[in-house]
Design a protein around this nucleic acid. Structure first.
Lengths: 147, 147
DNA sequence: CAAGCACTTTACGTTAACGTAAACCTCGTC
DNA sequence: GACGAGGTTTACGTTAACGTAAAGTGCTTG
């Protein structure tokens, strides 16, 4: 894996500043611990649009960020359709008409409300977990104290 | 819908203290805005175990709480399998052996870690939403200022 | 007693989000 | 020039979480 300076072409990719770096599908997959299949699927669903070099997909910084946001959305239980909706409107923003923009604002408010409810859900679930945890420890101590 | 006192049997259910109240499947479904099918499915998956009266399901306070917790878990993106795992261990707690209890504690720690990551995800997603929101408002103002 | 609810079981259908397998390119390397 | 490591497309398979439809049960109400 040692590198001779004459090897050139377009390697040394990971030494480049982030904005110029590119990734193969396998690299991205490793980084985010998903399979290439997943990444291709997201493209098919309109969440990613990498450029090509021949028939190979080339991912740039923008694509990496998109993937990151997508996976974050997934961890929060959003469907790919929901995620796409926001992402696409975001992209359409610069030249969006007023109606589109207002729709986007509505969408954002929706998502925000959703997140707030999740926060509350997390708060409550934490309390319950702490409670169960405490009771489990009690029982366990009981068991170990009286053999 | 007026009620004669002689109607009796076991009606007036909703006037009872919570701990004694019972629910039909339809009532529970209304309360939580899910379909009866969903509730039956959760039972089939081992998340609920209502008693019967003839062949009709009778839900008690305990079942209602379970359903509530289940739905909360769902909103947070947990699978029914994950939820069941915790719920069943919780039930097995009183007479659980040490190994089981320790396993339960592990499970709880896992869930907690999961929640923490979700909290962070929510925090980040909020920031992004706020950002997009701001930019959308800017563009919109631009549009309305220059007709 | 017929009609209408609300419940029941059984069973097949559906959708989202990938997994898996086959068959094919295209490099750099031995 | 064979080959192995990655990439590609195409297509069928799988799982979770219900939806939907059919056919039957049981009460109470006009």
């Amino acid at each position: 894996m040692t590198r001779t300076p004459s090897q050139a072409q377009d390697s040394d990719n990971d030494a480049l500043p982030r904005q110029q770096r590119t990734y193969t599908i396998g690299e991205l997959a490793q980084i985010f611990e998903v399979t290439p299949r997943t990444i291709r699927f997201y493209e098919q669903e309109g969440l990613l649009a990498p450029s090509r070099q021949g028939q190979k997909r080339i991912y740039r910084e923008k694509d990496r960020v998109r993937l990151k946001l997508t996976l974050r959305g997934k961890r929060l239980g959003f469907s790919l359709a929901e995620i796409r909706e926001v992402v696409m409107m975001y992209d359409a923003m610069p030249d969006g008409n007023a109606r589109q923009l207002k729709r986007l604002l509505e969408l954002l408010a929706e998502k925000r409300a959703n997140l707030e409810r999740q926060l509350e859900d997390i708060r409550l679930m934490r309390l319950e977990i702490d409670d169960v945890d405490q009771r489990a420890r009690d029982v366990l101590r009981q068991l170990e104290d009286t053999p």
